[in-house]
Simulated scan of single mutants.
Amino acid sequence: MKTIAVLTDFSKRAENAARYALCLAEKIHADIKLYNSFFVPSEDPLSAQIAWPMEDYEALKRESLHQLELFGAKLKKEYSVGMTGTFKPAIEYECHDGNFNTYLKGLEAEKDTVLLVIGDHEKGMSTWMTGNHLDEIIDQVSLPVLVIGEHQKFQQIDKIAFATDLNTGDIEQIHSLAGLAGTFNAELLIVHIADEKYDDLELQYKVDTFLSDITSKIDFAKIYYRRVKSIDVGHGLNWISEHGQIDMLVMVHRHKTFLQNLFKSSFTKEVAATIHLPLLIFPSPAYAVPVF
């Protein structure tokens, strides 16, 4: 059974992300698995320098699991009233001690997991999802990561925009994304952001080659292409988000591409907050893209 993993620290942003994930799970016929990472002071490198009270590991774990169960029950109650579809996602729970990044590889090993959902970053929060943790998750995980803002509510997805530098390595991710778009009968808009000074003949050749590869490998009729002229990728993405009538923005995370600056410290969270849209990030290289 397909599963959507949801990381939660019980903050409002994380709870909202879980609600979005639950609605999405209903549409794609997937179950939900809630994860929480609880902190054990004795395992902190600085704990020896601080007079920590004695903490009972099992008590901390029970409390974390109890909070997960309460939140899961709350979600179940909400969707039993608000959801009208015939499929009802099952909700499971799992908690770990310490930094959750330690357990990402184990999560990825669960073959049925197709997506990891997290809330965006809120400056000043002292939880395990603060600081560079969001960036670390995006850097380390080999699953697609869906970042949901605090005020983003689930709605019908009619158009998904996929930002690309026309790298043929993106074809696999587009193929996977076509499955998600097909579930909603949505359009899939391929967006390339390029400077006006870019050689039009050279660009057109790359576009034609890229779209030809898509046509030959992906059987999905509602794929369209649009070039956005901008010298700044961030500005181009903001423009297409504001004027393109899209419901989700999708990118591929690479370490050495024109998108690299988007994934420097905290910028991913800044993009997600600025565009006010769900931001889906595919890893690259894609060792195993999910089937939605």
Rank of each mutant, 00 (worst) to 15 (best):
M1A: 11
K2R: 15
A5G: 03
V6D: 00
V6L: 00
L7R: 01
L7W: 00
T8H: 01
S11Q: 03
A14M: 01
A17P: 01
A18D: 00
R19Y: 14
L22S: 00
C23H: 15
A25E: 04
E26V: 12
E26I: 12
H29R: 15
D31L: 00
D31P: 06
N36A: 06
S37W: 06
F39W: 13
P41W: 04
P45L: 07
W52F: 15
Y57Q: 14
R62P: 08
E63H: 13
E63P: 06
E63T: 13
L68K: 07
K74Q: 13
L75R: 03
K76M: 12
E78Q: 10
E78G: 07
S80F: 05
T86D: 15
F87A: 06
F87D: 07
A90L: 03
I91P: 00
E92R: 08
E92F: 10
Y93A: 02
E94Y: 09
C95A: 15
D97C: 10
N99Q: 10
N101S: 12
T102Q: 12
L104Q: 01
K105D: 15
G106R: 09
G106A: 04
L107E: 01
K111S: 14
V114N: 03
D120I: 06
H121E: 11
K123Y: 08
M129S: 02
T130D: 10
T130Q: 02
T130F: 00
G131H: 02
I138Y: 02
I138V: 14
D139W: 08
Q140W: 05
Q140Y: 07
L143N: 03
V145L: 02
I148A: 01
G149S: 11
G149W: 09
H151Q: 14
F154G: 08
I157E: 05
I157S: 04
K159Y: 00
T164G: 06
D165F: 07
L166K: 04
L166A: 05
N167V: 03
N167P: 05
T168Y: 07
D170N: 14
I174S: 02
L180G: 10
A181E: 11
G182D: 15
T183G: 09
A186G: 12
L188I: 13
L188T: 15
V191W: 04
V191H: 03
A194L: 07
D195L: 03
D195K: 05
E196I: 10
D199R: 04
D200F: 06
L203D: 12
D208A: 08
T209V: 08
F210I: 02
S212R: 12
D213I: 05
D213W: 05
S216L: 11
S216H: 10
K217S: 03
Y224D: 15
Y225I: 12
R226S: 15
R227E: 15
G234E: 15
L237V: 13
L237K: 07
W239K: 14
W239I: 13
I240A: 04
S241D: 05
H243V: 11
Q245S: 12
D247K: 10
L249D: 09
V252P: 05
V252S: 14
T257V: 08
T257I: 04
Q260H: 14
N261A: 12
F263Q: 06
F263P: 04
K264L: 14
S265E: 13
S265D: 12
T268Q: 06
V271D: 08
A272E: 11
I275A: 03
L277M: 13
P278S: 09
L280I: 11
P283I: 08
P283Y: 09
Y287M: 10
A288S: 12
